[in-house]
């Protein structure tokens, strides 16, 4: 059988193996989460960003299992392959989008995901308190999701948004950087 591209895998899994739900349910529910956090942290958006990232991390730890169980994908051979899998399969089968991969660094350890569409932020406007547009990364949960999911497959990464159309930027861009490949953990007391 011919090797299928990540795009084909993503499309195929999305069409045949994914139970769907109304996007507005997810959009509005995510909105309620961000709104609740803004309340809980009294509009300290730096803390809200951190909390969103950490919730995303927990989601990533779970989500990767669902991803692997549904796609039966092989281990990626390079970080480039990983980027393809994230965009064409990962984002496709959960959020039905395929962010573009751009801006590879020379050492191939950093790339950007450009989001033309972002279901989490559909019909969202940041609070106009003069602060949120500079401080809040509304979709920061996605950074955590990538960090958590990739850590589970032994890739330690850092992910952060560098621009967001919600803030008036031209594009929504997330930078993903490979920190290191993790070793398997050893049993306690074993050397």
């Amino acid at each position: 059988m011919a090797v299928r591209t990540p795009r084909q895998v993503g499309e195929d899994v999305w069409k045949t193996r994914i139970e769907k739900v109304n996007a507005e349910l997810v959009t509005l529910t995510y909105g309620s989460v961000v709104a609740q956090l803004c309340k809980d942290f009294r509009n300290d958006y730096v803390q809200v960003n951190e909390q969103l990232e950490s919730m995303g991390y927990n989601i990533g730890i779970r989500l990767i299992e669902d991803f692997l169980a549904r796609t039966n994908s092989e281990r990626c051979r390079s970080f480039k392959d990983t980027a393809e899998m994230i965009s064409k399969v990962g984002f496709k089968i959960f959020l039905n989008i395929t962010p573009a991969i751009l801006n590879w660094s020379q050492d191939n350890k950093q790339f950007s995901l450009i989001f033309d569409e972002n279901p989490l932020a559909d019909f969202v406007e940041l609070p106009d308190d003069g602060k949120a547009v500079n401080e809040l990364w509304y979709s920061n949960i996605l950074c955590g999701v990538l960090r958590g999911a990739l850590e589970m497959v032994q890739l330690q990464v850092e992910a952060e948004f560098v621009s967001d159309v919600l803030r008036g930027d031209d594009a929504t861009e997330m930078k993903v950087t490979l920190v290191r490949v993790l070793e398997d953990e050893m049993p306690v007391g074993d050397e």
Partner: peptide, 17 residues
């Protein structure tokens, strides 16, 4: 209406909530 998303996307978000 935005295109559908995966039920899992909701399930994982709800889990964290």
């Amino acid at each position: 209406r935005a295109p559908d998303l995966a039920l899992s996307a909701f399930a994982f978000l709800f889990s964290e909530m």
